[in-house]
Structure formats: C-alpha cells, structure tokens
C-alpha cells in the first residue's frame, strides 16, 4: 500500500472520478492554471482541459450558483472554495438553493454536487481565515457534511461525495494536506454517514472528526501510557451522523468526551451530547464534556492562538475529569 499525502489522496479521487464520469467538472478560484491554491487539483487542467477544470473570478456566490444551475440540468459539479471562510459569501446558494432544491421542487431536481475546500484554523491566520463551519452546514436539512481526517478517508469519502446525488459539503483540513497515510492502490469508496473507530478502548470514548482525529489519537496514545484506554470514534460524516457508532462506543465505555475544532455554542459536540443523553442515559458514569475552540474569534498572537485551540493537553484534561482522576 502506498503512503501518500492527504493532498495527493484528494487529487487521486478527483482524477479517478473525472475519468469515470464526464459529467463531473471542477470549478473554483485558481483550480486550473495555478493548479490549486493548495495544489489539490495539480495536473487536472492538463489532463481534462479548460471546460472541465475551470478557473473562476473571485466570485464565490456566483460560481456556487453556476454549480447549482449546472446540477439542475444534469452535470455533476465540484465547486472548490479556496477556503470555507470565503464560502460565507456563497451560503445563499449552498443553503437556499442547493440544500432545498430537491424538496421545494417536489423531488424533480436532485443536486448531485460537491462543495469542497479547506476548513478550520491553520497557523496564525487570525480571525477571518480560521473558522470551522461544519456545525453551521450540518444544521441544514438537504445537505450532507463530510470531514475526513486521514488520507485514506479523504480519498474514499471524496469519491463517495462525487457519486452521491445530493449536495455534499466536503470540509478538508488545511493543516492536513501534508499529512501522510496508507492508501490502497486498488479502487475503494467509503460510504457517507459511517463513523469509524480509529482506536479501540474501554475507559472513555473520544468522539471527534476532521483535523481533531489526529489530536484525539495523540491524546489516546499519551493516556495509554498512564493506563487509560481511550476509544477514538471518528464521525467522518457530520450529517447524517452515525448515531449507532456513538451509542455503541459510549455504552461500552460509559464516559464520553467530544473533541471538535469549532466553537462551543450550538456546535457539533452539542448534537453528539444530545444523542448520548437520549441513547446512553443509563450507561453514563459522568457528565459528557466537550473540548472546543475558545469562545472568541481566532487571535493572531501565537500564545493566544494556542490558548484558543482545542489540543492534546485539553483533551487529556477532559478525559481525566470524566474519569474523576485528579490532573
């Protein structure tokens, strides 16, 4: 099995799906001539030409709408946002058009399209470039929301997203593009809506997704040295959320910590906690705790940024709290 980067895994998924189906095209800022702001689309213009790999003006609302229109008449657009931060300008198309089209047309117009791009904080990009949007998007019926944390998942989930006949918001991790992992040479597709236990354990469940999968795994590794066996459940898809996987893990461990990149209020973790209290009430030995970004816009200064972000020490502290272990 080859070891490749998350970026290469995404590139392979795009290329394979464009080869498989000529209705699939990629559109966004700098995706063609520049080869992608993060080089995810490297080589695709040369292979598929300018009708299928389309550079746009800086016009997020506009090209998101072009994607919706193309999907209405049978194409399968992949709309790249240079970052999801810029996608705020396009949310009318994502929410009011793509998500609702099937429903408000009585089932006449499916939206087989993907909105994708990097999500969440990188390093010292401060307030407007460091935001995790999955809880916003997951609020909307009619959308699917996918957050791969590893190269293997990135490739398999992106292929599934492109093949799905619904609008899929695919949130990549800006800090994950250079991470490496094993990816099979043979073709595979990972179904949307299925979580994966990334590490087994029976003392506490760490429910997480996206970039925080790596944080949770590192925390679990350190906890193991103290004899604490943490189970890491990677949701992979936020909507639909794999309630069964959450329930199975928490019923086994009886304790739960949710680790997410975004803010606390109405975050993904709030939804996980709701599922846990409904389905695991009699199994809980401690209140569920959440690890998340501080309740402030992202600051620039290194020390403040570090303090704002969820990380391994904060995760370990939360785990010890639900185990009633003094830190």
């Amino acid at each position: 099995m080859a070891v490749i980067t998350y970026r290469e895994a995404l590139n392979q998924a795009l290329r394979e799906e464009m080869l498989r189906d000529d209705r699939v095209f990629l559109m966004g800022e700098e995706v063609a001539v520049y080869q992608g702001a993060y080089k995810v689309s490297k080589g695709l213009l040369q292979e598929f030409g300018e009708m299928r790999v389309v550079d746009t003006p800086i016009t997020e609302l506009g090209f998101a709408g072009v994607g919706v229109g193309a999907a209405m008449v049978g194409l399968r657009p992949i709309i790249e946002f240079m970052t999801w931060n810029f996608a705020l300008l396009a949310l009318d198309q994502v929410v009011n058009a793509a998500a609702k089209m099937l429903y408000m047309t009585g089932g006449q117009f499916p939206m087989p399209m993907v909105f994708r791009g990097p999500n969440g904080a990188a390093l010292q990009l401060s307030a407007q470039h460091s935001q995790a949007w999955e809880s916003w998007l997951a609020h909307i019926p009619g959308l699917k929301v996918v957050t791969p944390g590893t190269p293997y998942d990135a490739k398999g989930l992106l292929k599934a997203a492109i093949r799905d006949d619904n609008p899929v918001c695919f949130l990549e991790g800006e800090m994950l593009y250079n991470t490496k992992g094993e990816v099979p040479d043979e073709e595979y597709v990972i179904p949307l809506g299925k979580a994966e236990v990334k590490r087994e354990g029976d003392h506490v469940s760490l429910i997480t997704h996206g970039k925080m999968v790596l944080v949770a795994l590192q925390a679990a590794e350190l906890l193991a040295k103290e004899g604490i066996r943490a189970e890491v459940v990677d949701l992979r898809t936020i909507r639909p959320m794999d309630v069964d996987a959450i329930t199975a893990s928490v019923r086994k461990t009886n304790r739960c910590v949710v680790v997410e990149e975004g803010w606390e209020m109405c975050g993904v973790g709030a939804q996980v906690v709701d599922f846990v209290q409904r389905h695991c009430f009699d199994h809980l030995d401690a209140p569920v705790l959440r690890v998340h970004q501080a309740d402030a816009p992202m600051p620039y200064a290194k020390n403040l940024e570090k303090a704002a972000k969820p990380d391994v020490p904060k995760t370990i502290a939360a785990v010890k709290q639900v185990l009633y272990i003094d830190a």
């Binding site: 229109g69 657009p77 198309q93």
Partner: peptide
C-alpha cells in the same frame, strides 16, 4: 439568487 443559477444552466 436565481441569476447565477441561470449562468450555470448556460454553462
């Protein structure tokens, strides 16, 4: 909101 969608159909 529908004007970019029209451009998409044209595309």
């Amino acid at each position: 909101g529908h004007i970019p969608i029209a451009a998409g159909v044209g595309f």
